[in-house]
């Protein structure tokens, strides 16, 4: 996973509340068992004029020239709600986004972000609105900087806005760690846990074949 320490980039505002993962990547755009090939389907229902088409709708923010090269997305409350599909995060990453700034995130989406090098940055509704109203004046000029290491967002025209990430999420983003590798260091603890648990809670460890035979 590509680490993310600090990024300065064009930010695109999409300040709708409850942007769901169906909107981020419609199910009809998930065409193969793959984490890639999803960028074209990103926001397909809003980005294109017709369902399934590829004719860009100029009203959608990412189709507007000033937002070319956007790597930061400004969103509303409860960003990423709905389906757990990680394809939403893979699509955002493949398109080029590295940061989503929003007042709140849906829990599964937030977890998916940090595992894929996409920083979920929480700032207040007022701060997101203020950043947005500054960005729209000239998106290419008023780029935002998100510093994951320092935990701040700022622009040439704003005070630094601090944000919080829990330690594990921050470490994953900064170092691009593979969580499975980290956890497998504790394999002895895990094995010991399950060995003891088999005795304590044998009902958790069913023998399906024997039960199939019985029924």
């Amino acid at each position: 996973m590509e680490p993310l320490r600090r990024i300065t980039a064009v930010a695109a505002p999409l300040l709708r509340d409850n942007i769901d993962t169906d909107a981020i990547i419609p199910s009809r755009e998930m065409r193969s068992v793959s984490k890639t090939g999803l960028a074209d389907g990103l926001f397909a229902g809003w980005r294109y004029r017709t369902i399934g088409g590829r004719d860009a709708d100029p009203r959608f923010v990412l189709n507007q020239a000033p937002y070319a090269g956007a790597r930061i997305l400004l969103g509303g409350e409860n960003f990423g709600c709905g389906s757990s599909r990680e394809h939403a995060v893979w699509a955002l990453r493949e398109y080029g986004f590295r940061v989503i700034i929003a007042p709140s995130f849906a829990p599964i989406f937030e977890g998916n972000c940090v595992r894929n090098g996409l920083a979920p940055v929480r700032l207040s509704v007022e701060t997101v609105a203020a950043l947005s109203s500054q960005v729209v004046l000239d998106p290419q000029a008023h780029r935002l900087t998100v510093d994951v290491e320092q935990g701040v967002v700022y622009s040439d025209a704003s005070e630094p806005h601090p944000f919080e990430l829990d330690g594990e999420s921050r470490a994953m983003l900064l170092e691009g760690l593979d969580a499975i590798d980290l956890t497998l260091k504790h394999l002895a603890d895990i094995d010991a846990f399950f060995a003891a648990d088999r005795t304590a809670r044998p009902w958790i460890y069913p023998d399906l074949a024997a039960m199939d035979h019985a029924s």
């Binding site: 599964i108 499975i180 956890t183």
Partner: peptide
């Protein structure tokens, strides 16, 4: 509910 990457983690560990 979890993502696919977390599911992979749960399967492996």
């Amino acid at each position: 509910g979890i993502g696919s990457t977390e599911a992979e983690h749960a399967l492996a560990t």
